[in-house]
Write a protein that binds this DNA or RNA. Structure first.
Lengths: 216, 216
DNA sequence: TAGATTGTTAATCGATTAACAATC
DNA sequence: TAGATTGTTAATCGATTAACAATC
């Protein structure tokens, strides 16, 4: 039964540390599944992933008792449960804003599409690009973004514009009704509380790599 | 004076949580500097960044007493100190492995170049791409990667190949002597202890966005 | 049944926050 | 000097690990 703090209506608040580990669990379970492994114990997962067995059991028990004493966890079932917890049992409609290098790279990825994240269109201000097609999606005029997002019930806006314009784009996307923003601009954006945001700060990532490299 | 656990030779081990915040401090300080702001207190930074003033002072004091009682922190100086701590006071030579969408996108970024991260070459297995130029860099044969990395004293290898090939690429890069790996493949790589690794797991990022979106 | 392994409580560890003396 | 704000110690909070009874 899900741990819900003794209140049978409200689910317990899950810490961000746990949430960040879920996609990783899912990757390892996908791997095991592909290899035809049927069951896995917290101890085996521990050896594989480097978390303690205790942490693995704690993490999973935030969401329910998916295992069986004396047996372990069924790989397939657990994979399905985690996919469900992550919200991967539905599709997400996305738009990319900014058809520069990064926007194009993301548009050309087929991986997301395969897993239910569907890029619907790409918006751009540069008139030379408007009307082109990238990986079968239309490059549309940024001016038309708000009505498009409204009419097509877009779920996620992917921000691939220079940092100077990122906040304005975020404001428009939120106004138009997205419920998630995937931000690649190297700034922190202000977002209304009902919208989720996930940042991919590539420069921050590179800088922390530099830190670790220089401290040796 | 740097906090060094009472041992004057060994610097204190800095927690990863702190290190991950450093690039963000640096971004905000860069912003302030650009605006011509001369000094900033932990309280002002707190309001700006959303960390507690106490945490900011603790974080900075891991590395030294950069502030002045009754005054605060000099923006320029602190920016320089943090840049130095991150190891951004030198250049890094990099190679990209994999000239697909992501590899090309990274090659086309000029931002890294400006800040001392220099893409030297791009390696690819596809013979149709070898010999092309992307943003003024040569696309070279993957077969020639190891001697190239050795001869040119490459610091960082950027892995932009499919996940099936990522470990092999990492092994070769480490053998050839890189000291850092920036991994974009959605797998966890085994790396010798003297090499640093930073992962950009885009699918994990998207999946945690999906989690937050579905829990509302 | 006996052995294995979970679910869960308790103990530990580490990170964040609060408080305040030092000092510019 | 008085006021402001740091540097730093102590208190609190939360996350991880250990332990073990429950149970398949």
């Amino acid at each position: 039964m899900p741990n819900n703090n003794g209140n049978s209506k409200e689910p317990a608040r899950i810490s961000n540390a746990v949430i960040k580990r879920l996609p990783r669990y899912r990757r390892y379970l996908a791997e095991l599944r592909k290899k035809g492994v049927e069951k896995v114990s917290s101890n085996e997962l521990s050896r594989l992933m480097g978390y303690t067995a205790s942490q693995i059991r704690q993490d999973l028990n935030n969401f329910g008792g998916f295992g069986q004493q004396g047996y372990g966890y069924n790989v397939n079932d657990l994979y399905g449960e985690i996919s469900g917890i992550l919200g991967l049992d539905r599709n997400y409609k996305m738009v990319i804003v900014g058809a520069g290098n990064l926007g194009q790279a993301i548009a050309n990825y087929t991986y997301y599409y395969k897993t239910g994240f569907i890029v619907d269109a790409i918006f751009e201000v540069n008139p030379k690009m408007i009307g082109l097609r990238i990986n079968d999606r239309n490059v549309l005029d940024y001016e038309d973004m708000v009505p498009y997002v409204e009419e097509n019930k877009i779920d996620i806006g992917i921000i691939c514009v220079p940092k100077e314009n990122a906040q304005e784009v975020a404001d428009k996307l939120c106004f138009a009704g997205v419920s998630g923003i995937w931000n690649f601009a190297p700034v922190d954006l202000e977002i209304p509380p009902h919208v989720s945001i996930e940042n991919v700060h590539l420069s921050d990532s590179l800088h922390s790599l530099a830190y670790h490299m220089s401290k040796r």
